[in-house]
């Protein structure tokens, strides 16, 4: 069913997704969106891992994806907790306003 698709296409697809995520991190000011873009990057990695896993006919790639998911969930939980705390204090999540630490 997957015959006829070169791994190259998957590589390309995940790279493009990864880069889109990276651009998002750079181009947006909204902390939550930045965070979401990071999730997008992780998903690009997941896709890549799964495709490689299929390529090698080896389950470990897919298992690795589970760990990435677990970590992503943990990171998001912590991250959003921190974000909402910031929002409580600053009433904004604009990254440009978060510059109290510059001398």
């Amino acid at each position: 069913m997957i015959n006829g698709i070169s791994i190259n296409y998957y590589l390309l697809l995940s790279t493009v997704l990864f880069i889109i995520g990276a651009i998002g991190v750079m181009a947006r000011r909204n902390s939550i969106i930045i965070f979401m873009c990071i999730e997008l990057m992780l998903n690009a990695v997941n896709l890549l891992l799964v495709s490689f896993s299929t390529l090698h006919n080896d389950s470990s790639g897919q298992v690795f994806v589970f760990f990435i998911m677990a970590v992503a969930a943990a990171e998001v939980a912590v991250g959003l907790a921190i974000l909402s705390m910031i929002y409580r204090n600053v009433k904004s999540i604009d990254t440009d306003l978060l510059s109290n630490l510059k001398n």
């Binding site: 069913m1 997957i2 015959n3 006829g4 698709i5 070169s6 791994i7 190259n8 998957y10 590589l11 495709s51 896993s53 299929t54 390529l55 090698h56 006919n57 080896d58 389950s59 897919q62």
Partner: peptide, 14 residues
Amino acid sequence: AEQMQLSSYGASQI
């Protein structure tokens, strides 16, 4: 990476 093709569906039960 062009030469690397994904293995066939039937065999893949992973």
